[in-house]
Write a protein that binds this DNA or RNA. Structure first.
Lengths: 184, 184
DNA sequence: CGGCCGTATGCAACATGTTGCACTGCGACG
DNA sequence: CGTCGCAGTGCAACATGTTGCATACGGCCG
């Protein structure tokens, strides 16, 4: 539905090969859009057919050859069209919440362990994002244009990780209290 | 990957037909797991084949007949197994963030409009969730077991909607400032 | 009486995402 | 000298999710 568009945005920021794009999707772009290298190669192929990107084979020495992709005029037009198009609410799918809701149908401690694990993972991510914020955007507040937009997306990552950590803490605290209450 | 498990949790709370389940997925369960009636019917069929649920045809008068599904012993075992199984980090896919990141590649105002629309949608949801919280859980803090777990999942909904609203506000404010700065 | 809404189930085709594998060549580590 | 990791591309099979349609009955509204 929108991987094409995520790729258009990424390539418009900087042209590159499928491999390089895949690595960017594991990092900066990855904190708001996940995609495997398989998906990316397949989608790039389709985008060439659609005429949204141009390819250029690049011969390299000491490394395998590569294909560099660039957004075409048609691609830029499609990107503008998509940016203006309103989209419906995003579908929510939260595995951990399903587990919490079903906790008493199995071993509650197993679920608590996983909530704790998720909490730590989110806390780690939060630290990474905060480090990026301080390193790359020390001048936040005076940002404009594309740099500002990049910063705002990072802010989404920070907020959602923080939100996740806080919820996990709330869950753990409540479940521990409940556990003690039923024991004592 | 986990729709089966979401259905097991839902059916374990209360047995019912595919249709009824679909409506529950549009409401209470819907705020942490989205599923269409198609998916549900198809998955229930598979779950019968797997032996995780039992079906019973129920003849009705004045209405079409229905099939009532109940979790079997095998289903309960599978549910316990899944609850104990650790799962990897959930894949993030945030359309709106992609649009914000690409805002300057099209008309920035178009993107702002959509951020505003999303903001309002999230704010509405937040109000709904808060209403449910006050109506159904006025005694929060003294909850235990399954009721507590239901409440905690509602809390996830409240937190994430709040988080979304706040981020949208941050984006809108920053983009408005940027707009004025480039004009004046 | 004709059309729409709600209850109730389902197929078929398509779009999207996941998993496992295949192949190349270089440089680093042991 | 083997094998591990990185750079680089890709297919095939499968799992999952979306969209459009089909069918059936009863009640309500105009």
């Amino acid at each position: 539905m929108a991987l094409e568009h995520a790729i258009l945005v990424a390539l418009q920021e900087k042209s590159g090969s499928g491999y390089e794009l895949a690595r960017r999707f594991d990092r900066s772009i990855g904190y708001f859009w996940a995609a495997s290298h398989q998906q990316i190669y397949r989608t790039l192929k389709r985008m060439v057919e659609l005429g949204w990107v141009d390819v250029q084979a690049v011969v390299q020495q000491g490394r395998p050859d590569k294909k560099v992709y660039r957004v075409s005029d048609a691609g830029r037009a499609e990107l503008r069209r998509w940016l203006a198009e309103p989209d419906g609410p995003a579908a929510v799918r939260n595995d951990l919440a399903v587990k919490v809701r079903g906790a008493s149908m199995g071993d509650v401690r197993d679920v608590m362990e996983q909530v704790a694990r998720h909490r730590d993972r989110h806390a780690e991510r939060l630290d990474e994002y905060r480090a990026i914020e301080q390193r790359d955007f020390p001048d936040a507040g005076r940002l404009t244009g594309q740099r500002l937009h990049q910063y705002l997306v990072l802010r989404a990552g920070i907020r959602s990780e923080q939100c996740a950590v806080e919820w996990c803490d709330e869950v753990l605290e409540a479940m521990r209290r409940d556990e003690e209450g039923s024991r004592g």
